[in-house]
């Protein structure tokens, strides 16, 4: 789309944002182990979310003036973009409801989870967002190869995240006795991670379709709404995890 930034500076920006996010995640972890303040964790999560929403999801594009011919690709993309964002807004209420339920039911307790694994999957997801951003900026600069590679890497990282959460953490949690039937702690844990994993899975499928169609040369520098949609959706899934990670892994005392 009307990306005025040139290729190099887009790369620079992507790296910078990813580094910020990584640093903030580290800070989050540090806060949690040293002086656990829900307030500080919330602020950090909000800052991270804002970074993702602005630099990766380009929320400002919603505001773009696209007057003119209602049948043009640009105008239709604007329409589609609004639709996608409204969908995400709607989805936010599901995740918000889950967070509310978590705090209502568990209060200041959290499930006994594997901290190392949590940090790893969080980083994997964050990294995937970086590559997704690479893919999108590449196609916006006409670099099809970069776009295809970026998408592929994102997809692989997404699968890695799924394996980490569903494949390993679910099993570990079961071993560690956070079993569904035991009490509501397990219920919330499986419900939150499950709902998020479901979104990751649909995101991976979406990316696969984009990647396959991209290989057929379906997307061009000017017309690649499909890529943008997949990217925004993917970043949204990342954004949800930005809140779920502290809610499940960091906030409160371990309780069983």
């Amino acid at each position: 789309m009307s990306h005025t930034k040139d290729k190099a500076s887009a790369l620079q920006q992507g790296i910078l944002v990813a580094v910020y996010l990584a640093v903030l995640t580290g800070l989050e972890f540090f806060v949690a182990v040293s002086f656990m303040s829900v307030m500080v964790l919330t602020v950090i999560a909000l800052v991270k979310a804002a970074l993702v929403a602005y630099y990766f999801m380009h929320i400002y594009k919603l505001n773009a003036e696209n007057e003119g011919d209602h049948d043009s690709y640009e105008y239709k993309t604007g329409t589609n973009r609004l639709g996608l964002w409204l969908f995400l807004l709607s989805d936010t209420f599901v995740f918000g409801g889950l967070l509310v339920s978590r705090f209502n039911l568990l209060g200041m307790e959290r499930p006994h989870l594997n901290q190392t694994l949590g940090l790893i999957v969080t980083c994997v997801l964050l990294l995937s967002s970086f590559f997704m951003n690479r893919a999108e900026t590449s196609i916006a600069h006409g670099d099809t190869k970069g776009f295809l590679n970026g998408t592929l890497i994102t997809m692989v990282l997404g699968l890695g995240f799924l394996i980490g959460v569903v494949g390993l953490e679910w099993r570990l949690a079961k071993l560690e006795d956070v079993i569904v039937n035991k009490d509501v702690m397990g219920g919330i844990f499986y419900m939150m991670t499950g709902m998020h994993a479901f979104h990751v899975l649909t995101g991976v499928i979406f990316l696969f379709l984009v990647w396959r169609n991209g290989r057929k040369g379906y997307f061009t520098q000017e017309q690649h709404w499909g890529v943008e949609a997949a990217a925004v959706y993917w970043h949204f899934v990342d954004l949800v995890w930005i809140f779920f990670y502290p809610a499940l892994y960091l906030i409160g005392k371990v309780g069983l």
């Binding site: 807004l89 709607s90 209420f93 599901v94 339920s101 039911l105 569904v180 509501v184």
Partner: peptide
Amino acid sequence: TATQLIGLSFQMVMFQRLFGMGF
């Protein structure tokens, strides 16, 4: 927006019934 919450609440009862998640 709000519709998602009835969906979620009903889903949670469904899961409580199916998997014993005691929400």
